[in-house]
Computed example of a mutant assay.
Amino acid sequence: MDFIQIFVLALLQGFTEFLPISSSAHLILPSKILGWSDQGLAFDVATHMGTLAAVILYFRRDVFAITQGWLTTGFSKQMNNNARLAWAIVIATIPAGLVGLIYNDWIEANLRSSEVIAYATIGFGVLLLVADQKANEHKSILQMTLLAAVIIGLFQALALIPGTSRSGITITAALFLGFQRDAAARFSFLISIPLILAAGLLKTKDLAEQAAQVDWATIGLAAFLSAISAYVCIYFFLALINRIGMMPFVVYRLLLGAILLIWFV
């Protein structure tokens, strides 16, 4: 990979990991247009670790409070709000984790196509619009129940379909359940931590089993760029989401899906 390819793909991964616009669609588009080869497993590991570092750094106080609440009252009958939120994050992570373990190879072989990504980008974008327009937003993140976490977790499993957008589908579910936009986004970002960590560790294991030499300069640059762009993305998304709503992202998704259909399908 040359510097331009590393720069573009790492920034795209960081920006699109947490926006409800599908990272799969954005990674396939420049590669198809510019004829770039697959970035490889090492690059995937680097960008996963970069985005993980960004979300943990941004939510470091929340992560500390949630972890502390879980360790102190999470196994008692009088759980505090942070302990309940910790259990909600665990429960919301389980469906996608199980589906990923069972069907990941089948999904990679059968669904990672331009056509699937295009239709998923459009279809789940429309669903996000319906949720944003019709939902009764009144709940804060501390009102997250275990049932709500299960439902959001089941929606999150749909993100294994390329083009869906993990953040988009979980925010959609939370909006349907009555959560405020910023609460929906914050919970979506928090439940990304265990999933990104698990995916990164799994890819690291696969990388360690390969005999190919790792280009550590590329790894370091990709991780740094994806971390910076992901942190900036989270900051501005949470600052603006209550004011701008989901409409700009829906319009963008519809245009992107149309371009993919016209160009590649």
Score class of each variant (00 low, 15 high):
1 M>S: 14
7 F>D: 01
10 A>S: 15
10 A>N: 03
13 Q>H: 11
17 E>M: 06
29 L>Q: 07
32 K>Q: 15
40 G>H: 08
42 A>K: 04
43 F>Y: 12
44 D>G: 06
45 V>P: 05
47 T>L: 10
47 T>M: 03
49 M>V: 14
49 M>L: 15
51 T>K: 00
53 A>D: 01
55 V>P: 03
64 F>W: 14
65 A>E: 10
67 T>L: 11
70 W>L: 14
71 L>I: 15
77 K>N: 15
77 K>P: 00
80 N>I: 10
82 N>P: 01
90 V>K: 01
90 V>S: 02
92 A>P: 06
93 T>N: 04
96 A>T: 13
98 L>K: 08
105 D>H: 05
105 D>K: 03
109 A>G: 02
109 A>C: 04
111 L>I: 09
116 V>D: 12
116 V>E: 11
116 V>C: 11
117 I>A: 02
117 I>S: 02
118 A>M: 07
121 T>V: 15
121 T>C: 03
124 F>V: 04
128 L>H: 01
131 A>F: 12
131 A>I: 12
132 D>L: 10
132 D>R: 13
133 Q>Y: 08
133 Q>W: 07
134 K>N: 06
135 A>I: 01
138 H>N: 11
142 L>T: 09
143 Q>R: 11
144 M>K: 05
145 T>V: 05
146 L>R: 10
147 L>N: 10
150 V>W: 02
151 I>V: 15
151 I>S: 08
161 I>C: 03
161 I>N: 01
165 S>K: 07
173 A>M: 01
175 L>V: 04
176 F>H: 03
178 G>M: 08
179 F>A: 12
181 R>V: 05
182 D>F: 01
182 D>H: 14
185 A>Q: 03
187 F>D: 00
188 S>H: 00
190 L>I: 07
194 P>H: 03
194 P>C: 12
195 L>N: 05
197 L>F: 14
200 G>E: 11
206 D>L: 03
207 L>T: 00
211 A>R: 12
213 Q>R: 05
214 V>S: 06
214 V>L: 09
214 V>E: 07
222 A>K: 08
223 A>M: 15
227 A>R: 00
227 A>D: 03
229 S>Q: 10
230 A>N: 00
230 A>V: 08
232 V>D: 00
235 Y>G: 02
238 L>Y: 07
239 A>F: 06
240 L>A: 15
240 L>T: 15
241 I>G: 10
244 I>H: 11
250 V>M: 07
250 V>P: 04
250 V>L: 03
251 V>S: 09
255 L>F: 13
257 G>L: 10
262 I>K: 13
265 V>L: 13
